[in-house]
């Protein structure tokens, strides 16, 4: 697996996880397997922000559900602090890992007050009495930058940015270590998005949180993540430190994703993409490398055989024709990738 000299402290680890759903096509159609995750391995190190990028249908959301214990993997293992997820108490897991969802309009129960919403985790876990729960709500509201008088209001009275702050408060009220952020800003306006991103960055620094940051917005990922994993059709095709990836992606798919990022620079035009074919249907995945029908570099071998993921000092790459130097290049010691940012 990973380079042994690297001192790692994975808080969360996926080992060869696969997830298959059966999908019925049509009224009387036969059920067919849809493999959302294929033999996927991933580590989340203490204190880092792992950006997870990929297009819709690549399995990002399924991965998030498995990490939250909302879905069970079909095969493979999920380790939390080295112990398999299945064996752990569901409540104990909930205390360590909490989600922040995409849509602040759908993630808050419209029939409950803000105080009820935020204190739900405390009540479910029986932490403290009513008074101390109220105090905890007040405290966490302050942390996420909301005045305590919003406690008795309802979500419908708030703006999108405020609701997302409430969602963050709910996720943090039990002081988890790991937060799964599933597109936390993509439903928000630009000016509100920056507030939420700043808040997430501050919270990570002040509370020592570890984030899995799922997003399709690569500019945001580049800004916040310390390491990035690129997913394509249920597999990780490249994994690297953020700077290294944005300086030069090795996988042609990562490269295409980076090309498609529209930075607000008027001197650059609209990029020309040469991803001819559409995103493949996960029910009928292409042979060999799943990306080969869209890849400019694809050869016969790519269609025949799937490139095995190669783990090196730079991260992970699964491609027969990676960009840049050979994947086995040795790296000077002083340029060794930063480990998780110091917390």
């Amino acid at each position: 697996m990973r380079n042994e000299t690297k001192a790692t402290n994975p808080v969360l680890e996926l080992k060869n996880v696969s997830k298959t759903y059966s999908v019925k096509q049509g009224l009387l159609g036969k059920s067919r397997p849809l493999t959302a995750l294929r033999d996927l391995s991933l580590r989340l190190e203490q204190g880092e922000v792992l950006g997870l990028v990929g297009e819709s249908g690549c399995g990002k959301s399924t991965l998030a559900k498995i990490l939250l214990g909302l879905e069970a993997p079909t095969s493979g293992e999920v380790l939390v602090d080295g112990a398999p997820l299945g064996s752990q108490d569901r409540l104990a897991l909930a205390r360590r890992i909490q989600p922040i969802f995409q849509d602040p309009y759908s993630s808050l129960n419209p029939r409950k007050t803000i105080a009820d919403i935020i204190s739900l985790p405390l009540r479910v876990h029986g932490i403290g009495d009513a008074a101390s729960q109220q105090a905890a709500v007040r405290e966490i509201l302050d942390v996420v930058g909301l005045p305590s008088r919003v406690m008795h209001t309802y979500p419908s009275q708030m703006s999108g940015g405020q609701r997302q702050r409430v969602a963050i408060a709910r996720a943090l009220v039990m002081k988890p270590d790991i937060v799964i952020c599933d597109e936390p800003t993509s439903a928000l306006d630009v000016s509100v998005q920056s507030q939420i991103l700043n808040l997430l960055a501050d919270l990570r620094r002040d509370l020592g949180l570890t984030y899995l940051f799922i997003s399709h917005n690569l500019a945001v990922v580049e800004h916040l993540a310390t390491r990035v994993a690129v997913m394509y059709l249920g597999r990780i095709v490249e994994e690297a430190e953020t700077e290294a990836l944005f300086d030069g992606a090795r996988h042609p798919y990562s490269e295409a994703l980076l090309t498609s990022v529209l930075t607000p620079d008027p001197s650059l035009g609209v990029p020309r993409m040469n991803l001819g074919a559409a995103y493949p249907n996960p029910i009928d995945p292409p042979s060999g490398c799943a990306f080969h029908p869209r890849c400019a570099k694809a050869t016969e071998a790519c269609a025949r055989q799937r490139p095995a993921p190669v783990v090196d000092e730079d991260g992970l790459i699964a491609c027969f024709h990676p960009n840049g130097m050979a994947p086995t290049r040795s790296r000077p010691a002083e340029a060794a990738p930063r480990l998780s940012a110091s917390v």
Binding site: L70, Q98, S106, N109
Partner: peptide
Amino acid sequence: REYVAAARAVGASTPRILLT
């Protein structure tokens, strides 16, 4: 809705989710 997923992720029991 995501608030149901959020309640499940918190570890809330099924009767609790159904009722509240």
